[in-house]
Design a protein around this nucleic acid. Structure first.
Lengths: 195, 195
DNA sequence: GCTCGCCATGTCAGTCGCTGTCATCGCTCC
DNA sequence: GGAGCGATGACAGCGACTGACATGGCGAGC
């Protein structure tokens, strides 16, 4: 694959994670990352669009998994499109929570790096926003109205964000799936009494 | 205020908006913005943290207004903290929608610039995320549980994002307040049937 | 087994966002 | 009208990112 050793991309990712964790994102230059990976700065930018993106490479796979779940969801055949839409999004995130995410320890270290740096937080919420937009698009394709689709996607994504945050902060080491289910359940309690 | 003409900050903002709209964000350098405003590049960065921030200067005021609404909300005295929390957030956004935002034409132009440039979209969602986090903090201070506070803030903010998007895209020139109310009402229909 | 061509990487030069530092200017207060 | 102060200018420099071209490895085809 590479001119020398293989796996250039994952070597770059590993080097970046290590350096970001050791000395912080700002105090790490792309040249240093490349050097540790045995490559050049120019090659780094051939594998990652920018210095932040190296931490968010898995995002497309997560998005694809969520879209597939919703695209194939049996919940969306009904007339009650709105509630079914949210249920389908919630189910998709439950699948992802069970299958997709790395061990909590890795996620914790990654999150420490992100939490210490505003530009990285910006990228993270941007990724979630794109996921939300993509989910809304799929819901529309499956016949959900524009407004309901956008809201179901936003609410589901928001619940997942909350669940993920609580998971990495959880000292009791609960499962991500547990946190997601808890957040979805709590979300449902937010509505009825105020209608 | 300035060494020469007054209103340096708003001149910079105006110059930036004009240039971004005319030739695009990427094709505009900070030096060009400063020149059009009759200032230097260095002065631009004394007024705005970075090249994007010039489009998001009003965000702190919006956040302050929302926090004030929720802090003073009479809805949060009840036992049913969850539903009351969402209601308080929704009410805050309705107040903001009625009072705070500029005419739709200005918002439309601004949104065209943002929609044409991913880094600007990133900043925009980051601002909304910070607002959501701040709202969750206030809700916690007022006695709402951690999970319910975070979810009410996320859901309310998400509904507002959807409403705002539909407002600037609305060919019928509906009011922002109308869109916000519609989104909140639709959000409430997403839950019951699937509990 | 040799050559050709593709693709990943290296090299180099350049632009621009952004920052620190110090000088300078205008205004205000006394 | 001098002193102090806050905003601006001038300058130097770092680092992220890009475009253009050179170079090396590796497989396909002969």
């Amino acid at each position: 694959m590479g001119r020398w050793e293989p796996n250039a991309q994952s070597r770059l990712r590993q080097a970046a994670m290590d350096l970001y964790a050791e000395r912080g994102f700002d105090q790490t230059t792309v040249a240093e990352i490349a050097e540790r990976a045995g490559l050049t700065e120019r090659t780094f930018f051939r594998h990652f669009a920018d210095k932040r993106e190296v931490l968010f490479a898995g995002s497309e796979r997560l998005q694809a998994l969520l879209l597939k779940s919703v695209a194939e969801s049996p919940l969306l055949s009904e007339a009650a499109a709105g509630p079914a839409a949210l249920a389908a999004v919630a189910a998709a995130f439950e699948v992802a929570a069970a299958d997709y995410f790395p061990p909590v320890e890795y996620s914790r270290q990654r999150q420490r790096v992100i939490d210490a740096n505003p530009p990285l937080q910006e990228r993270e919420v941007a990724k979630m926003d794109r996921i939300s937009a993509a989910l809304a698009g799929i819901l529309r394709e499956r016949g959900v109205g524009d407004l309901a689709a956008a809201l179901a996607a936003e609410a589901g994504t928001g619940a997942f964000k909350v669940a993920f945050t609580r998971w990495v902060a959880d000292p009791a080491d609960g499962s991500l799936l547990g946190h997601v289910r808890e957040a979805i359940a709590e979300l449902r309690t937010l509505l009825p009494a105020t209608a």
